[in-house]
Measured scan of single mutants.
Amino acid sequence: MIINNLKLIREKKKISQSELAALLESSRQTINGIEKNKYNPSLQLALKIAYYLNTPLEDIFQWQ
């Protein structure tokens, strides 16, 4: 199971779900699903999230 700190990191950087979704060329619903652990992002999307949040991938997503 993958757990994530996306919501915590996103809020700390003062970025809304909609703003992050626009940067990622994704939907706000996708970001919401990832944050609620209802959806696991593809590797490509996970890497883009890490890039746009300027945060190491392993700080956002962790195996448990």
Rank of each mutant, 00 (worst) to 15 (best):
Lys36Met: 15
Ile31Thr: 01
Lys36Gly: 10
Glu11Leu: 11
Asp59Tyr: 09
Ile2Phe: 11
Thr30His: 11
Ala50His: 00
Leu24Pro: 01
Leu47Cys: 15
Ala50Met: 03
Asn5Val: 06
Pro56Cys: 08
Leu20Met: 05
Pro41Ile: 08
Leu24Arg: 00
Ile49His: 00
Gln62Lys: 11
Leu8Gly: 09
Asn54Cys: 12
Asn4Val: 08
Glu11Gly: 05
Gln64Asn: 13
Lys13His: 12
Gln17Asp: 03
Leu53Asp: 01
Ile49Ala: 05
Tyr52Phe: 14
Glu11Cys: 13
Thr55His: 07
Glu19Thr: 12
Tyr39Asp: 05
Ala46Ser: 06
Ala22Glu: 12
Gln64Ile: 07
Lys38Asn: 12
Leu53Ala: 03
Gln44Ser: 13
Leu24Glu: 00
Ala21Cys: 05
Ala21Trp: 09
Leu53Gly: 02
Ala22Thr: 12
Leu20Gly: 00
Thr55Asn: 03
Asn4Pro: 02
Glu58Gln: 11
Ile31His: 04
Tyr52Asn: 05
Gln62Asn: 05
Phe61His: 00
Leu23Glu: 07
Phe61Thr: 00
Pro41Trp: 03
Gln62Arg: 10
Leu6Val: 04
Arg28Lys: 14
Gln29Tyr: 10
Ile15Phe: 08
Asn54Val: 07
Pro56Asp: 08
Ile2Arg: 09
Ile3His: 08
Ile15Thr: 02
Ser27Asp: 15
Ser42Asn: 08
Glu58Tyr: 13
Lys38Leu: 14
Leu43Ala: 06
Ser42Gln: 05
Ser16Cys: 06
Ala22Asp: 11
Gln64Met: 07
Phe61Trp: 05
Gln17Tyr: 06
Glu25Asp: 14
Ala22Gln: 12
Ile15Val: 09
Thr55Lys: 03
Lys14Pro: 01
Leu43Ile: 12
Tyr52Lys: 05
Gly33Glu: 15
Ala46Phe: 04
Asn54Ile: 06
Glu25Gly: 15
Ile2Val: 12
Ile15Tyr: 08
Arg28Phe: 09
Ile60Asn: 02
Lys38Gln: 14
Thr55Ala: 07
Tyr39His: 11
Leu6Ile: 03
Ile15Leu: 12
Lys14Tyr: 06
Gln64Cys: 11
Leu43Pro: 10
Tyr52Pro: 00
Thr30Ile: 15
Ser26Gly: 06
Leu43Glu: 06
Leu20His: 00
Glu35Ser: 02
Leu6Met: 10
Lys38Phe: 13
Arg28His: 11
Ala46Gln: 06
Leu53Lys: 00
Trp63Pro: 03
Ser18Gln: 13
Glu11Ser: 08
Trp63Met: 05
Leu24Gly: 01
Ala21Val: 03
Gln44Tyr: 10
Lys38Thr: 13
Leu43Val: 10
Trp63Glu: 02
Ile2Ala: 09
Ala46Asp: 01
Lys48Phe: 04
Tyr51Ile: 08
Ala22Ile: 13
Gln29Val: 10
Lys36Ala: 13
Glu35Cys: 05
Leu8Phe: 11
Asn37Trp: 10
Lys13Ala: 11
Ser16Pro: 05
Ser26Tyr: 08
Ile60Ala: 01
Leu53Thr: 01
Pro41Glu: 03
Gly33Asn: 15
Ser16Arg: 06
Asn54Asp: 15
Ala21Gly: 05
Ile31Gly: 01
Gly33Lys: 15
Ser42Trp: 03
Glu58Cys: 11
Leu53Val: 03
Leu24His: 01
Arg28Thr: 15
Asn5Gln: 05
Ile31Cys: 04
Tyr39Thr: 11
Ile9Lys: 01
Pro56Gln: 08
Glu25Phe: 09
Trp63Ser: 02
Ile15Trp: 06
Ile49Leu: 06
Leu24Tyr: 00
Glu58Arg: 11
Ile31Ser: 00
Phe61Asp: 01
Met1Ile: 10
Ile60Met: 06
Gln29Trp: 11
Asn40Ile: 15
Lys36Leu: 14
Asn54Ser: 13
Glu19Pro: 02
Ser26Thr: 15
Ile49Lys: 00
Ile60Leu: 12
Asn5His: 07
Gln29Ile: 09
Glu25Thr: 10
Arg10Ile: 05
